[in-house]
Simulated assay, not measured.
Amino acid sequence: MSRTRARLAATGTAVVLAVTGMSGAAVADTAPASTPSTGSAVVNSSTTFLKDQALNGIVVIPLPTAAPSYDSTTGISTTFPVTGGSANLSGYYGDIDLGGGLLFINVFTGKSATFKQLHFSVDSWQISGVPVGGTAPVVLLDPAGDSQIGRNGAVQTLNTSDLQLDAAGAEYLDSKLKTSFFKAGQSVGTFALTFTQGS
């Protein structure tokens, strides 16, 4: 093959590769990007519950990325960001992952329990967390009372008039913190959720 023909062949190959590469890049650039689910879950601990836990030496500390705020009338509100999941609240199915964590401390005994990987199961209507150092989730809280479910476009909402301690959570915390404070069905406060499904 002459040098001229070899150059033409090489040039042709380079053009084909360049066009192919550009086409692939164009496809990649125009492919729709997936968006994560967003929203937040707000746990409001009532002043009654806060006083009772303080008298029993129990302190609950929200961990990043949860954000707490305090009101002397309504108590402590902790906002947990939605980090993922798929759910239909009005259909009562799906799962929602929450960021942040919870640290429970008994100042009388010096014992503690920390939960991460918080999760709201719409199927079972329960909030769970995985203890640090463990792998199995523990059901901590049950939204209860009057439940108001709404939808505005893609945004789903849930508001409950009560939030109760689950029997499994009460047993785990009493054992871990060496206390008898926690009771199944104990009212903690209220629960509110805003959820937008990702794509």
Score class of each variant (00 low, 15 high):
residue 48 T to S: 14
residue 49 F to I: 07
residue 160 T to N: 12
residue 157 T to D: 06
residue 160 T to Q: 02
residue 90 S to W: 07
residue 198 G to D: 04
residue 193 L to Y: 03
residue 89 L to V: 13
residue 123 D to C: 10
residue 42 V to T: 14
residue 28 A to P: 01
residue 9 A to K: 12
residue 170 A to S: 11
residue 4 T to Q: 13
residue 183 K to S: 12
residue 73 T to R: 14
residue 160 T to W: 09
residue 193 L to H: 00
residue 108 F to D: 11
residue 101 G to P: 00
residue 168 A to K: 08
residue 11 T to I: 06
residue 93 Y to C: 03
residue 150 G to P: 07
residue 68 P to E: 07
residue 10 A to P: 02
residue 109 T to P: 13
residue 188 V to W: 05
residue 91 G to D: 12
residue 54 A to H: 08
residue 61 I to V: 13
residue 31 A to R: 15
residue 25 A to N: 08
residue 127 I to R: 00
residue 189 G to R: 04
residue 2 S to M: 11
residue 30 T to I: 12
residue 51 K to F: 08
residue 29 D to R: 07
residue 179 T to I: 02
residue 134 G to E: 12
residue 97 D to L: 11
residue 127 I to V: 14
residue 97 D to V: 00
residue 141 L to K: 02
residue 15 V to A: 15
residue 183 K to Q: 15
residue 31 A to W: 10
residue 147 S to I: 02
residue 175 S to K: 11
residue 183 K to W: 07
residue 59 V to L: 15
residue 84 G to C: 14
residue 178 K to Y: 13
residue 159 N to G: 07
residue 185 G to R: 03
residue 145 G to Q: 09
residue 106 N to H: 10
residue 44 N to Q: 14
residue 85 G to W: 13
residue 188 V to T: 06
residue 60 V to W: 03
residue 173 L to P: 00
residue 186 Q to E: 14
residue 150 G to F: 06
residue 108 F to C: 04
residue 164 Q to K: 14
residue 138 V to L: 00
residue 174 D to M: 00
